[in-house]
Design a protein around this nucleic acid. Structure first.
Lengths: 152, 152
DNA sequence: TTAGTGTATTATTCCATCTAGTACAGTCAC
DNA sequence: GTGACTGTACTAGATGGAATAATACACTAA
């Protein structure tokens, strides 16, 4: 699912964050889908569980992940307010990159085409939260509908 | 000219690189314009000259800066071949950002508008090397016009 | 000559990263 | 309840990049 690059300047937990975020936004991981447990992914990548824990924790702060103690971690869509900060950050970076590309000689057409390519390639993926239907994923931080079992 | 943020996760030399690059691509620093010397900028920012040296060195590798031993460092436009790698990197990031913005609910129109805004705001700045006329900047590694001497 | 420039080198301090180990509480199948 | 999972928290230590400090050399220009 994830491969690490020890030559990469980014720390390991950043690589994991970026890769997991990429899997979510590209649709490879759908909302509500269960991710490997902290310990199992640590074992699979042959690294320390604390490193995975850090990546999961920060990704949860971004809203791309929801963790439920005792149950697991699940891919999720950032709440509108959390996603707002993220979107503002992304728009800022977008402007900086466009500015530099322009300086390097790329015309508007070339840059816009690259944007349109992304939206064309993506099918019906990535609709707003308000437009999506309910699904199997955990609602907020609460326990998803459980059966009539009595724990004790 | 540059202000540092010690709370920033990025190392100091990265902050300097990013800021200087930004000044160049936005036109605040024009090609051939002289930058503060390694020692003077280190003094102005109250940091070690080695840190400035590292920032300048990497920025020169990117093509945004040309250093001439004994004379100084000057803003420059990346050679086409050096800039090619940079452009490819920027296009890659552009695609990733667009993908995430789309996932967060931004429609194509909103993203494209941000791009066009950049190109509209910029006047005649940032033309390709082949289209630019000869100017005061250093040709390759040769002596730049001595007229530019404002290292504020 | 003198002062300023870029550049290189070595040594040292500092801190984020990563590891290692342990611990606790919640969930779920049995 | 038991056991095996789960997320989470904490301490302690090792490692490596970042930044500093101090010199040194060659080049440029007034």
């Amino acid at each position: 699912m994830i491969s690490l690059n020890y030559r990469d300047a980014r720390p390991i937990y950043e690589q994991i964050k970026d890769e997991l975020r990429r899997l979510v936004v590209t649709g490879a991981l759908r909302e509500g889908e269960k991710l490997p447990s902290v310990r199992s992914m640590a074992s699979a990548l042959a690294i320390n569980p604390n490193t995975i824990q850090k990546a999961y924790g920060e990704l949860e702060a971004e809203g791309y992940l929801t963790s439920l103690p005792g149950k697991g971690s699940f891919a999720s869509v950032p709440e509108t307010d959390v996603g707002k900060e993220r979107r503002e950050h992304l728009f800022l970076r977008l402007g900086e990159i466009a500015e530099e590309l322009r300086y390097l000689g790329e015309d508007e057409q070339a840059v816009v085409s690259r944007i349109k390519q992304t939206y064309t390639a993506a099918g019906g993926r990535g609709l707003r939260r308000g437009f999506r239907e309910k699904r199997s994923g955990p609602e907020k931080k609460q326990d998803p509908a459980k059966s009539n079992e009595d724990p004790s």
